[in-house]
């Protein structure tokens, strides 16, 4: 139940982020924050790759974040 409500909240959040906040075009000279490494969608690619590999071998779902990376006999 808790899980389900978390999912609902997240979907809601995503919709909110997409619709409610109107796009505020960011000029090149206003990109100081976005340019920070920590603001990237994937600031630590190794952490992400290791996690992806772990969950690939322990769960039935895969994909979504990108393409490529290669296969594994683990699942």
């Amino acid at each position: 139940m808790l899980l389900r409500s978390i999912y609902k909240t997240s979907v809601l959040l995503a919709l909110l982020a997409l619709s409610a906040c109107s796009f505020q075009p960011v000029q090149p000279w206003e990109r100081d924050i976005l340019a920070q490494k920590k603001m990237q969608l994937e600031p630590y690619p190794l952490d992400a790759a290791l996690d992806e590999h772990t969950y690939f071998s322990k769960e039935a779902s895969r994909g979504g974040a990108g393409v490529g990376g290669g296969g594994c006999g683990c699942n």
């Binding site: 090149p28 000279w29 990109r31 100081d32 920070q36």
Partner: peptide
């Protein structure tokens, strides 16, 4: 001062 550089185009 904010630790960053100048963003230039």
């Amino acid at each position: 001062r904010n630790g960053q550089g100048w963003l230039v185009g």
